[in-house]
Design a protein around this nucleic acid. Structure first.
Lengths: 191, 191
DNA sequence: CTCCAATCTTGACACTGTCAACATTAAAGA
DNA sequence: TCTTTAATGTTGACAGTGTCAAGATTGGAG
């Protein structure tokens, strides 16, 4: 199967090769032709699996988001309360991107993330990490017997997500060398 | 001077044309050749003013950051206290990018911002909006007679910047249609 | 066994960033 | 005023890019 005309599993191979290139040389060095070459395949072969370059990038993003979600779920599960789960999730969020800033740039660089804050919308198609956060937040309200208006809930969600996402963003900036003292911030994460 | 061999003020014209293209068609449609064409100049003319494409983009970023700073300073000046100044600055921060999300993507999409958080470093070369924030924060400590360790100060700064920057980031995401109810968040911005 | 649809190749096109060689001109110094 | 020079702009070339059209190959359904 190595030197046969048909590759066998080109789609996955292209995604893996794309991730490797992004990790080693950054997104700006990702080209369809290089990805194809890395799979020992002609320059137009990817078009049998992806409509255009954007669609390959989108597939890679899904793949990276899955890895991201694994860390978040791992952080959340087994926690005694929603509060501690949310805090653990925030830590995992920042830790994940601190370890590989390239992923942050890759995932959020063009802001093409979908997240409907309105609680009465269907959640389908929303950004999975945000879905998890919302689930934990609703659990938090329930566990503590809190009743909040939709608007208040939205604000809380924005606040929580903002500080975590903002920290990740700042941590990924070049030149920001300060160590983040997460331990001190934990208890203030939730309002 | 219109049809003379020398343009006269090509450098500024290239920057302006670049901003226009980014505003109208997004950064992904910015090419040196288009910028040159927009200035009625040959495709290699920009190389007399910029080493490469990156240097032009960097110049455009400086230009956009100046506009950003104008809004921040405008929000800060005349405020009765450092606290109210910081809150106003946060509002201006989010408002600026809510109005033109393309600028957020352009400025922070690749995270190439320099901000040395350590208080004992020289501030030169730091990101101007961050410098302003730090100045206001130190004023806040002074006005309220607070004494904090360097580490505590850093944490405060990261927190403030994180929530504001994070909100701006989330506000610029596709699909986030919720209105930001800033009025409710103001009094909780400072710890 | 045949045929078809999925998959892959080849060749082309326009566009890109960049460089080298050359042209023009404003301005400084004689 | 004339000459020279450095700054600025042009032309032409090159490799690399995304994308498409036409054709080759092949696994698998019938």
């Amino acid at each position: 199967m190595a030197d046969s005309y048909h590759h066998g599993n080109l789609r996955e191979a292209l995604i893996d090769a794309g991730i490797k290139i992004i990790n080693e040389n950054g997104e700006e060095n990702l080209s369809l032709r290089k990805v194809a070459a890395a799979c020992d395949v002609s320059h137009a072969a990817p078009y049998a699996h992806f409509r255009d370059k954007e669609e390959l990038i989108e597939a890679i993003k899904e793949n990276v988001t899955e890895k991201f979600m694994e860390k978040l779920i791992e952080a959340v599960e087994g926690k005694p309360s929603a509060d501690s789960a949310i805090i653990a999730m925030g830590r995992a969020y920042v830790t994940f991107f601190s370890k590989n800033p390239d992923y942050f740039i890759f995932l959020f660089g063009k802001q093409n993330i979908t997240a409907h804050l309105k609680m009465n919308k269907e959640y389908k198609g929303d950004y999975p990490p945000f879905l998890l956060l919302r689930r934990m937040y609703l659990l938090h309200l329930e566990e503590n017997g809190l009743e909040k208006s939709i608007e208040e809930q939205e604000i809380d969600l924005i606040k929580i997500w903002s500080i975590v996402h903002g920290m990740a963003s700042i941590a990924c900036m070049k030149g920001v060398k300060s160590s983040f003292n997460w331990n001190n911030i934990d208890e203030r994460l939730l309002t």
